[in-house]
Design a protein around this nucleic acid. Structure first.
Lengths: 340, 340
DNA sequence: CCTCTATCGCGAAACGTTTAACATTATATT
DNA sequence: AATATAATGTTAAACGTTTCGCGATAGAGG
């Protein structure tokens, strides 16, 4: 047997009032105390729930937001998204999470899909998005918050991490421990975070007036495999670095794999500083030194910024929230007896 | 400037046809070739998109499904969900992913929330759900698919893994390598998978007629911390096991942590077989032997089963899809020179 | 050229809400 | 008690679709 849900009409009939009054009650308008009672009773008796679809049709709001990310299998992203989802829920919003699997086409397709679903707002980790789509969304009054990465050519709110100084600090830590030949396993240069992290690496070298050896800069694709390969190519160098900075989680994993498989002892033979994911840092032996991003905060800021925009508050647009990372020290960095 | 989207009415006016004809065209009805042309032109000119909300109001369908899982930070689940999301998208459905953070109350709350959002179907990894909620959903013709875990007292489609034989095979592998004292780090017994995996451990002991030492069965909570603690308690035993089977990913991670921190060499001093996550298995040295679940398949079966149900096809209800695991051998198991 | 039938197009109602604008009732003020 | 005012209630239209039932049209067969 299929049960048909009660409508506001049924409630009105049951309570002996008009539809408009019920609606007013539901939406917090003024209703006489006595009638409130009757309405409440009717609602309970009929197990009435507002039909969000019908409401959406009138109000042009769906109480739904879209979150578009490059991968659902990336714990950095999912822990942010988890926080976002839980905050939005508190405010009555549901979250449609889309994963574009690093695919340029899919990213654009799914953005359209979300817009077509009439979401009230979008949180996007952009990679190859057609920026016009974002402009159009904003014109249609659908706020968009960029997450983790920003875009140059567009005015759009963004919540991200100070990647440049994250890398700057990581490499500086290696400098202070006496390292001078520091390799970096960098990411794909079409990704914002990768560019920023590389910039940090370069800037700290400049600030310390240490010459940069181009051979110490390797470009990976943020995936495990390339972390492994590039670490191997460092190890194969005639004059290898004394320390390596790996710029994301997956490549850190790959780098550790390479080190393990070649029986390189860390930090005796090579010092290492990785990125993200405390869990990995703890399970690897010796405990890895890593750069940690404030995932919780990123989630909170972006959710609240989106809520604010959806409330119609456009103050401070475009807002750029730039959070700081932290270095969790492990035992993967050797203090060199180098006299500076 | 806020742009207002074109409606079917505008298209009708532009094409010089009635609303009904446009609707017929959109939904694949018969329309004269000439009119098709004009409609297509009008749609393109006005950039018309069907308003899914209005459609939903009429059709009582939202083209949205809910996925309710205990954690978004669990790569086993997110990789399944990723597959589900992408399949559903192909069929025009969007996926609302909710994470109940292992919380009983939240699980029930979010289930209601999804129902209230009028999703067309739900995929649920159940933990402490009030089974009546599922019954009510089914009565309202909202199909529910249980994922990874089943529920005893209710007729409901389910897609899961043969956890019992997964454990059975894992322990049997240890037996064939000569181990006889095998510890198990089991999960919380109120979780289906944990019970099943323990059953497998017990059954293989029975089948081999090997006596079970209760001290070798430890109960964790599927979290890293307990994996670490329980592994430590194994190592502290007077007569410790020669091999340990850890029954989920997080606890495997914890167990490895414990082994590393005490400098126990695997497999020389202790053999280990873990669960899930190839990545971990590869990064740990020596390469870990693990039980791997077919995440892709789980996602595919559950998505397709849900699609079938949403199509109204109730054949074979309640369906129980029970997929097989695989053991990926590593170097973490020592062949003992035990003469059987 | 007429009729029959199949095909296609149209008008209008319906889905379950919200919300102006107006109507009614209760309360306060004199 | 009469009026002014505030508080609460109601009617009806609107949101953008789908769909039923009917009318129009066109092509086929005679």
């Amino acid at each position: 047997m299929i049960i048909i849900a009660a409508t506001i009409k049924d409630v009105a009939k049951y309570a002996g009032l008009s539809i408009a009054t019920i609606s007013k009650y539901i939406n917090g308008g003024n209703v006489r105390e006595e009638n409130k009672k009757r309405i409440e009773e009717a609602i309970k008796a009929l197990d009435f729930r507002v039909n969000e679809i019908a409401r959406g049709l009138k109000t042009n709001k769906t109480a739904t937001v879209g979150v578009l990310i490059p991968s659902l299998e990336n714990i950095f992203l999912t822990s942010i998204v988890s926080r976002i989802e839980s905050i939005l829920l508190e405010y009555g919003y549901s979250t449609i999470i889309c994963d574009y699997r690093q695919d340029r086409e899919l990213e654009n397709l799914k953005f359209d899909f979300l817009m077509n679903k009439l979401v009230d707002g979008i949180i996007l980790v952009p990679q190859n998005i057609d920026e016009d789509k974002i402009r159009k969304a904003l014109e249609k009054d659908v706020p968009v918050i960029l997450l983790d990465r920003s875009l140059k050519d567009i005015d759009c709110d963004a919540v991200l991490v100070d990647n440049l100084n994250a890398a700057y600090d990581a490499v500086e830590l290696l400098f202070t421990k006496g390292h001078r030949r520091i390799g970096i396993i960098s990411g794909p240069q079409d990704i914002y975070t990768a560019r920023e992290r590389l910039k940090g690496y370069l800037r700290i070298h400049n600030d310390y007036e240490i010459e940069i050896d181009d051979d110490l800069i390797k470009y990976g694709d943020y995936e495990i495999q390339s972390g492994m390969e590039l670490m191997n190519s460092f190890l194969d160098m005639e004059n290898p670095p004394t320390a390596v900075f790996v710029t994301n989680y997956e490549m850190t994993l790959g780098a550790v794999m390479a080190l393990n498989s070649r029986n390189i002892s860390v930090p005796d033979e090579l010092s290492l500083i990785g990125f993200d994911n405390m869990q990995l840092a703890n399970v690897v032996k010796p405990k890895l030194c890593i750069v940690v991003q404030p995932m919780q905060q990123i989630g909170e800021y972006s959710a609240h910024l989106l809520l604010k925009r959806m409330r119609g508050d456009k103050s401070g647009f475009p807002a750029m929230v730039r959070l700081k990372t932290e270095i969790v020290e492990g035992e993967s960095i050797k203090a060199l007896n180098v006299i500076i």
